[in-house]
Nucleic acid binder design. Structure first.
Length: 473
DNA sequence: ATGTGC
């Protein structure tokens, strides 16, 4: 086992080196412990370190864990969990451990874990954390303002079948995928006139942002056409019951957002108090500090930039299609907002709510929750549940790593299977095949108290980043 | 998720 595997199991960074020595002893012990049995032993020590403090193999690791836990710190806050009932869609232990770590952040005042939760950097994906006057760059995420945008088009649903090649051409011609990918010529949008000098990093990266405006990146990002089905008329959507053609995109703030995250998390990590060093990427910035104010300004600019990014994608694709937009829904799902909440009935106060892979779900607010290329997305209306900090899941949530997915699935075979089901995938990798995700229906069933479903979107023509233009890992 | 550095 290596450092990465131990951290994935939930071993705090501060004691990984000690844990590695324990692993070495266990491997070299008579009979040699390996693989799954080794992981189980590490997990057992993590769960109840006091029971192992005199253990020949694990005593040193257990004592370090006890010492770490005994550091004088505040009592962690509690977090509420929404979770699918099916074991295959459950939230793994490592994501819980990350959420529990986030609850030790001194400024934390409210927390919740959504049913699509899985391990991320710092806060888990699907984590919601409210802090007093404090922002955590990695509780927003690397891809600041990663978001969804759905445009309902003035084309009959049947045209997705009868004019399929026309839709494919629009998708292939109007979108760009890949790490570092740019548009030539550069696209235009009013966000370029915003004040990019709010921080050094946004000032220096403005030209990169301009070149990348209207691109989709890699990973789980996609642009797809599908059929939107409304069971009844909805006034907030402004649509009658029926079947529609719709365009759905998932993208964010590209390289510039990642640079903002890296810059300000590094500053925050240098400022971490010694007793909290193991919180690592959960490092925070006070909004009273110059750095905190700078991050907040840059984050909000990235929010506008990511929204513009989607607007350009939809503009380019619908123009090639010759279609017009008759309705739309969009939302950030990696962001932080200043909101007023009544936490634990202690009265209303303004807090910073981080949603990292979580959909804003205040009462009446519309959002889009995608499943996968082979399963539906849902247009939802929030119910404003206080205990979830007015949040919901942002998707199905991964159930296996990208590497595990590439070992298990072959994309060409998955592509044929999807084609048989009437879904044409123009490009993607095996690590985004439907089987790598939890069951979106199980995830939606776990949050019926948080959101109401208004419409269902079935993907028909999908474009994601192909294998030729992605990073190795 | 990203793009640079190994």
């Amino acid at each position: 086992m290596n450092r990465k595997q131990l951290e994935k199991l939930g071993v705090p960074a501060a004691v990984v080196a000690v844990a590695l020595r324990g692993v070495g002893r266990a491997v070299n012990a008579g009979g040699g412990v390996r693989g799954g049995a080794l992981r189980e032993q590490v997990a057992a020590v993590l769960a109840t370190p006091h029971d192992y403090s005199q253990d020949q193999l694990w005593g040193e690791f257990a004592q370090s864990l006890v010492a770490l836990n005994d550091l004088p710190q505040r009592e962690p806050i509690a977090y509420r969990v929404w979770e699918a009932t099916s074991p295959a869609d459950a939230i793994d232990r490592a994501a819980h451990r990350q959420m529990a770590d986030a609850c030790r952040v001194p400024a934390a005042v409210g927390a919740a874990l959504m049913p699509d939760a899985h391990v991320g950097y710092g806060l888990p994906i699907g984590g919601v954390l409210a802090c007093a006057n404090t922002v955590i760059p990695y509780a927003v995420g690397v891809d600041i303002a990663c978001r969804m945008k759905l445009s309902v088009l003035d084309l009959p649903a049947e045209t997705l079948t009868t004019r399929r090649s026309h839709f494919k051409e629009a998708l292939l011609g109007g979108t760009r995928f890949g790490v570092g990918v740019e548009h030539h010529p550069k696209q235009q949008h009013a966000v370029l006139d915003a004040d990019w000098s709010v921080t050094r990093i946004t000032r220096e990266k403005r030209d990169t942002a301009w070149k990348q405006l209207g691109t989709s990146g890699s990973g789980n990002h996609f642009v797809e056409f599908g059929e939107l089905i409304l069971a009844r008329r909805d006034e907030s959507l402004g649509l009658d019951a029926g079947r529609y053609t719709a365009l759905l995109s998932h993208s964010g703030s590209r390289g510039v957002g990642a640079a903002v995250c890296a810059t300000y998390s590094q500053i925050a990590q240098r400022l971490l108090p010694a007793g909290y060093a193991d919180l690592g990427r959960l490092a925070w910035l006070s909004l009273d500090s110059e750095e905190g104010q700078a991050y907040w300004a840059a984050m909000n600019l990235m929010g506008d930039y990511a929204a513009a990014n989607h607007a350009v994608i939809h503009r380019l694709v619908t123009k090639r299609l010759g279609a017009h937009v008759v309705a739309g829904v969009e939302n950030h799902h990696n962001f932080a907002w200043k909101e007023t909440h009544d936490l634990e009935g202690a009265g209303s106060r303004e807090v910073v709510v981080h949603r990292k892979g979580a959909t804003p779900a205040a009462a009446g607010v519309l959002g889009v929750i995608p499943g996968s290329m082979g399963s539906p997305a849902f247009v939802v209306r929030g119910k404003g549940v206080a205990a979830s900090l007015a949040s919901a899941a942002h998707g199905a949530g991964r159930r296996m790593s990208r590497r595990a997915a590439r070992d298990r699935f072959r994309f060409a075979a998955e592509q044929r299977r999807l084609a048989d089901a009437g879904i044409e995938v123009l490009s993607a990798g095996a690590d985004e095949t439907p089987g790598v995700y939890k069951d979106i229906h199980a995830v939606m069933a776990a949050q019926t108290d948080l959101v109401e479903v208004l419409a269902r979107f079935d993907p028909k023509i999908v474009r994601m980043c192909g294998d030729g233009s992605r990073a190795e890992d």
